[in-house]
Design a protein around this nucleic acid. Sequence first.
DNA 1: AGAATCACG
DNA 2: ACGTACGTGATTCTG
Length: 887
Amino acid sequence: MTKEKLLLIDGNSVAFKAFFALYNSLSRFTNDEGLHTNAIYGFNTMLDLMLNHVEPTKVLVAFDAGKTTFRTKMYADYKGGRAKTPSEFSEQMPYIKELLTSRGIKTYELKEYEADDIIGTLAREAESAGIQTTIVTGDRDLTQLASELTTVSVSKRGVTDVEHYTPEFVKEKLGITPEQIIEMKGLQGDNSDNYPGVAKVGPKTAVSLIQDYGSIQGVYDHIDDITAKKLKEHLIEDRDQAFRARELATIKRDAPIEIGLDDLKYDGPDMEKLVDFYKKMNFQSFLNKLNDQGITGAGETEQLSEITYTVLNDDNLDEVSEFKDDVTFYLEMPEDNYHLSPMTGFVLGAGNDWYVGRDVDLLTRPEVKTLLEDKTVTKDVFDAKRTYVGLNRLDITLNNVDFDLLLVSYLLDTNDNNNDLGKLAKQHGYSEVETDDVVYGKGAKREVPLNDDIFYSHLARKAQAIQTLKTSLYKELTDNNQMDLYLDLERPVAFVLARMEIAGITVDADKLESMKSVFTEKLSEIELVIYQEAGEEFNISSPKQLSRILFEKLQLPAIKKTKTGYSTSVEVLEKLAADAPIAENILRYRQIAKIQSTYVEGLLKVINPDDQKVHTRYVQTLTQTGRLSSVDPNLQNIPVRSDEGRQIRQAFVPRKPGWQIFSSDYSQIELRVLAHLTGDENLQLAFKNGEDIHASTARRIFRLGPDDEVSPNMRRQAKAVNFGIVYGISDYGLSQNIGISRKQAKEFIDTYFEEYPGVKAYTENIVSQAREQGFVETILHRRRYLPDINARNFNQRTFAERTAMNTPIQGSAADIIKVAMIEMDKALQNMEATMLLQVHDELIFEAPESEIEKLSTLVPSIMDSAIKLDIPLKVESHFGPTWYDAK
DNA sequence: AGAATCACG
DNA sequence: ACGTACGTGATTCTG
């Protein structure tokens, strides 16, 4: 017989948590009848998670019954003064019960009792039967039920972010035993349930009293030992309240329930009912999940309409020449890396005339190639850069792209950065095309279908989707005042990036190989020392094993915790290094291991054997700010800060002997953008006078006189303040960063805002602007929506506020360098020099020696005049035989 | 698949 | 009282 396991769920509390966790998306979660579904959805997510995690044999969801309970009889104001339950929530409750029925889960409620008491009673029954129990709730009060056999899982932020309270965890978190929680609550009372304990006693005091005296009774038995005068007075004064609060907080474990453990058997869902329910709620993702499990009826509910197509072949090639003004084209490359992916098919056409095929060689025939290269016929595509690079491999130059569905979607809303055409189309209300996951499968099973009709129909539908969405998305762009951003910036940038990716940068593999053996040697040396210091061998790369060695075996002080254990991060190890040499060695080991695995070995793996180059892909439609990202390999995070890491750059060389690597970077571009956007006179003055901006800030925030010197430490702190402003400052963040007190950090910030009143006004304005219109913009009208700006949750809201300050700055800087890249691309057309890389505020080129002098004036002049700001932009240039030397 | 860690601007 | 600096990607370990 399988071991019995019981799952008890506090229905009201979980539903409530789910409702508020998805409150910001309330409007997105409605079914066809206008019913809100966010709580139902969140509840179901939790069910999936917990059923998987616990694998119970018995399940019950308990609900509260009505407003009056034995507690309200005892204390009339119990749970009084609560805000009215929103109707959007109440309307969902009956459906949650329906959901549970279809999932084959029992529910129960009992007049005069709360869900807690039902759970407490059943958990006790399970306890005496020796059954392992898990309780799920959003309410910490239930943690008093934790025991050897009973775990209480409390959801924290959302419904999936769960903490599992065992007696040990309660002890660790609160410093008391589960049984003592009611004692603590008795002393402190409960604001949300609206009953008082002892005046002026909060969690801190309550816990320490309970730790000292064991219980409330214990406190009063030793009341004369309490020396704090005020505290003692309050304790004596509120004695009755304390005992009453204790009773209110105590979960009944003998409620007169009419069900028992035997009634709770769980045999899984009634699939037919569940599928119907999901459909009624429009829960597509849960349906897909069932579909993946092979449940019939859970697949796509909507039948796609028929689509017609013509298979392109030698005999009908000339029909393609009939397209004269606008065609839609899509090239299928199933793998992410389009530099290497097989090309498995294409579709080309307009109106309802779709020509499809598997053999991409057909594209190289004059009829098709001419069309694709024609500068008068416009092309509509999905991902112009990908298409351009793919066609380039066939020696076809894609010209005159008009509409790019992927790029336009991203500009309309940076969250629409899904790379699947089907998913993206659906987000824009077009459902006549399936996702690749559905047609091609996912994971290891993914493959292009052998069946021609399935494959060709899918391709034709993709083209149809692009063509159909063009009009409406263009209208949205125009309405948003973003058409120029698309036509003059992002679309041209796509092709500049494509050419940079195709060009690639040459990597000296021999250099990397020789570095590899040096590092291997160093690593094994350090490894030996660490083993010696630890007294045993272990996996240094495993944070888990490492923290066992450091914090248990060697008893070093644990400074910071992570979700899963003690942190072993740099900041922790650096603090330990003062008294423990092992920490220093681990840091050193980590540093070298990182360089070795990510950069030396990582780069060697991606050098293309044909040309000895690496060809990164710049992801243009990902970041929330408008920056690029670089993948496979990431060439935007090649080491530079440490000497050892920096040497990696010696392996990046020009493609021809005697050529140079040339690099230009914007100096302080984000602070200059800040000065421009805020219009702050003092900040602008500093830049106009060409001052050292961090020193200048130091003078102001430390209120130095004209003859006072700025010490290096002052400059360092001022620099951190400047960064903080750009990131959307908080006193806590600044204090952590430079290791000062929070109070001191606050003083820095206050002084900064006094000295730079324009910056202060800007931060206030941009946040209120975000609240009013729901988004913020860059200089060139790039948008970022901030739905969380009005969130009730403190974390979400303040994060959105910081983002509102940072995004226009980081994003406008991204706008500027993109303009410069387009101009550089044009300017280099008649030169041998090639633009290779972009690293956010820096452009890197390779060029013959003879062109270096010209570049030295050309590049800075284009970069600093890309967008005219109220203050000058400054550009610095360097060059040398390798990237390392271009410093 | 997610967490931890660390590389960059 | 809450618990934070902004934006990324790759590697390794682990459940």
